[in-house]
């Protein structure tokens, strides 16, 4: 899996200012994510992991520091539509069917109707939603809406996929199923992926590399490589190696919490 870095961040920081109050969400964060890697940010709430993700995707600008994506600035990469982003909330447009929601990025990109329809159907198929093309978001379950959001993020064949706690609010079993599906999709596409989560076993199950983050200010405290064969399965989760990774990551995360709450 070695190769060039897909994403590099150099001393990226972020300070939010609201009125006279200012709050440092991120200290100086530097990191590298190699191409075709599944990377994860894990940490206590308020450690700036979502902020860091948004900076990497050029959704918000850093206060200082630089981000490069495949050798260009994050802004350039975004403008060239290199990114797919899945938010905590699926943010489907309620007036558009599942199919039309998946078509949206292609529509904005000026891809003709027949082509985008074919591609959207293919993607709905990939996320296991055949038969629900015409359904409006209000008629979809939480898990189905999230699948649509993932399909939508994949439409333009992004070079980097950003996932901001995409399975938040799903119960444990649904979350495990969605993780297994996400891994399957990832194995098919091998898109460089950056996930934000606060769930340890989710991080171990999906990632090649996990960044453990602490807060006040947000920073990376540790980095852990997960070297487990793929595809990982429900059985993998009970293997001694998995359990050991889980224990190790939990210990690192515990330090991050303790550090933040003196």
């Amino acid at each position: 899996m070695a190769g060039t870095d897909a994403i590099r961040a150099d001393a990226v920081s972020k300070t939010f200012t609201i009125g006279k109050e200012s709050f440092q969400a991120l200290g100086e964060v530097s990191l590298e994510i190699p191409e075709r890697t599944f990377a994860t940010f894990i940490g206590p709430s308020g450690c700036g992991k979502s902020t860091l993700l948004r900076i990497l995707a050029d959704v918000i600008a850093p206060t200082s520091g630089e981000v490069s994506v495949f050798g260009r600035s994050a802004a350039q990469a975004r403008e060239e539509r290199d990114f797919g982003f899945v938010f905590q909330d699926p943010v489907l447009l309620p007036w558009r069917s599942a199919l039309a929601n998946v078509e949206l990025p292609m529509q904005l990109n000026g891809i003709d109707k027949a082509e985008r329809r074919a591609r959207a159907l293919e993607l709905l198929d990939l996320v296991g939603l055949q038969g629900f093309e015409k359904a409006l978001p209000a008629k979809l379950s939480g898990g189905m809406a999230r699948r649509v959001a993932i399909a939508r993020a994949l439409t333009l064949g992004p070079r980097v996929l950003f996932l901001d706690e995409p399975f938040n609010g799903l119960d444990e079993i649904r979350r495990q199923n969605m993780n297994a599906e996400l891994q399957r999709i990832w194995l098919e596409t091998r898109t460089t992926t950056v996930l934000v989560t606060h769930n340890v076993s989710e991080a171990v199950f999906l990632s090649d590399r996990v960044f453990v983050m602490g807060r006040n200010p947000g920073r990376i405290m540790a980095q852990l490589e997960i070297d487990l064969p793929r595809p990982r399965t429900i059985e993998t989760m009970t293997s001694p190696e998995f359990v050991e990774y889980d224990r190790e990551l939990t210990a690192l995360l515990r330090t991050a919490y303790e550090d933040a709450e003196p």
Binding site: R54, R78, R81, V91, P105, L108
Partner: peptide
């Protein structure tokens, strides 16, 4: 934010 990622 989604529309921004899509460079709309």
């Amino acid at each position: 934010e989604l529309m921004r990622v899509l460079n709309a």
